[in-house]
Each structure stands twice: as structure tokens, then as C-alpha cells.
């Protein structure tokens, strides 16, 4: 007998509650750590540069983006803030979002062979997929700090709100990932639809431009995209307030993040135990 016997487990097909699921996640947290480690190892094994790719990828992306938007498109040269920094504040969160959404969406289907053979809370799989991309996201901000030094730029007091916007983005990516990962098991259509939506979404998100470019009467509808509030909030927090606090987009973004998050978690818990039969 093992020394620490868990409480009696009842298997009756009823969906887990929030509380019981949190307990399970805690009990299996090492699976999460192992999956993240596995993904990092596998992604960079047999590459010459190894983990340095975590640095190269955002670096290349930022170089291309500042060239494309700053030099070719010639947007907003009038800003007092160095233009590449404005772009980076949009590119870094977008890059994280647009990687983590397909990664988590495909995660459950890609792990079906495991799901069919053993139990651990299935949420761990999409969460691990998002976490691996979040590591790249964090490293990209280190590059942003280097960019600030390069341009001799110092963020203001607003920077204390920076972690909050990052947290919101993390919550958004994770819950969307949970939702899409189960939806993709049930309806493989999702896997075809989402890449297209991401391509469209890039233009509907202030990545290479700022909210100010959107006509006044459309800004409210535009800000229903939760990324608008997050990106504009990040710009406000890191770039000395930009043109004032984007109150309406931030509130709308919080509301849409919360609403979609609750729906996503609820839906995930409702179908989690059925995944093998649904696939």
C-alpha cells in the first residue's frame, strides 16, 4: 500500500465541478511540467542553435515588422515615441496569441493516443501548449527591454500595470485554447476555420498601427476584439501613457475576456470526460 491513500473516487460519468477539477489539476501538476519540458526538448533537439531559437524567432519577427510598418508603410513618423517600440507592443502579444491559438487547438487531437490510454485532467494538454508559447512571449519582452535601451527610452510609472495586461492575455489565450481544443475534437471544421480567422484577425487588431487610425464611429465595435484593449493597454503601460488611458477598449476587453473565459471553462468541463467517445 502506498503511504498516502487518496480519498475514495467515484466514477459515475457526471462532469467534474470547478473545485474537484482544481484538486485534480494540483494532483497531476507534474504532468504539466513534463509536457512543457518535452515540448521544449523536442522542438529544439537536433537543431544547431537549440534553445537560442527562443530568442531568434521574436528577434527576426520584430526586425521584419519594424521594416514593414515603419519603413515601407511609413506609418506615424510623427510620434514622439520611437516607432519600432510602438510596433513591438503590438507584435509581441499578437505573435503569442496567433501561435498559442492553433497550438492549443490541435493539442487534444494530437494527444488522442494518450487520452485513450490513461487519465489525467485533459486541460493540462492545451495549457501546456499555451505555456510553451508563453515562454517565447516572456523572452520577447526581454528583447523589448533591450530595444528600450537602444532607443534610450525609459517607460513611466504606468509600467506597474504591465503584468496585469500580460496576465489578461495569458488568461485569454488559455481559455480560448481550452475551448478550441475540445471544439476541434468534436468538429474538425474548427481546424480549417481558425487559421483563416487568424489571418483576418491580424488586420482587425492594432498590431502595425494604433487604435487612433480607426475612425471614431467604428472604435467601439472594433474594441470588441479583446486584443484591442490588451495591446492598447500594453502600449499605455510601457510607452509613457501614449495618448491617454484607453478606458473603453480596456473595459470592453476585460468583459469579452471574462465572458469567453467562463463559457470556455464551462464547456470544457462539460465535455472533458466524453472526449474519447466524441473523437
Amino acid at each position: 500500500m502506498s503511504e498516502n491513500r487518496p480519498p475514495t473516487l467515484i466514477i459515475d460519468g457526471s462532469p467534474p465541478t470547478w473545485r474537484s477539477y482544481r484538486r485534480e489539476l494540483r494532483a497531476f501538476h507534474e504532468v504539466l511540467r513534463m509536457l512543457i519540458r518535452r515540448d521544449l526538448i523536442v522542438r529544439f533537439r537536433q537543431t544547431y542553435f537549440g534553445l537560442a531559437w527562443l530568442l531568434f524567432k521574436p528577434l527576426m519577427l520584430m526586425a521584419v515588422m519594424s521594416f514593414a510598418f515603419g519603413f515601407l508603410a511609413g506609418f506615424e513618423k510623427s510620434h514622439a515615441t520611437p516607432y519600432p517600440l510602438i510596433i513591438f507592443c503590438g507584435v509581441i502579444p499578437w505573435y503569442f496569441f496567433s501561435n498559442s491559438v492553433p497550438d492549443s487547438m490541435n493539442s487534444l487531437l494530437g494527444h488522442m493516443h494518450i487520452i485513450q490510454k490513461t487519465y489525467f485532467p485533459r486541460a493540462i494538454i492545451p495549457i501546456a501548449a499555451v505555456a510553451v508559447d508563453a515562454i517565447e512571449f516572456a523572452i520577447a519582452w526581454l528583447l523589448f527591454a533591450l530595444g528600450c535601451i537602444w532607443f534610450g527610452y525609459l517607460p513611466g510609472w504606468q509600467i506597474v500595470f504591465f503584468p496585469l495586461f500580460c496576465l489578461q492575455l495569458l488568461v485569454l489565450c488559455t481559455t480560448i485554447g481550452l475551448w478550441l481544443s475540445v471544439a476541434n475534437v468534436q468538429f474538425r471544421d474548427i481546424g480549417n476555420l481558425i487559421p483563416f480567422m487568424l489571418t483576418t484577425g491580424f488586420f482587425l487588431t492594432p498590431v502595425g498601427y494604433t487604435l487612433m487610425r480607426i475612425p471614431e464611429q467604428w472604435q467601439l465595435v472594433y474594441a470588441l476584439n479583446p486584443l484591442v484593449g490588451i495591446i492598447e493597454g500594453l502600449r499605455w503601460s510601457l510607452l509613457n501613457g501614449m495618448e491617454g488611458f484607453p478606458l473603453v477598449p480596456v473595459i470592453l476587453s476585460l468583459a469579452t475576456t471574462l465572458a469567453s473565459g467562463l463559457i470556455a471553462v464551462h464547456h470544457f468541463l462539460a465535455v472533458e470526460s466524453d472526449l474519447v467517445d466524441l473523437a
Binding site: M1, S2, R5, P6, T8, L9, I10, I11, D12, G13, I115, Q116, K117, T118, Y119, S273, D274, V276, D277
Partner: peptide
């Protein structure tokens, strides 16, 4: 092994389970 849920009925399990399917 909790891979699929039952349609009805229930199972009571006391102790740690390792499933080698």
C-alpha cells in the same frame, strides 16, 4: 481508468490507480 465515462451506474475506487492499458 477514467478514459471513458459510464452511461449509468457507478464505480467506487479506494486507493491510487495505475492504468496499464
Amino acid at each position: 481508468a477514467r478514459v471513458i465515462p459510464p452511461t449509468s451506474g457507478r464505480v467506487r475506487v479506494r486507493g491510487r490507480v495505475a492504468s496499464l492499458l
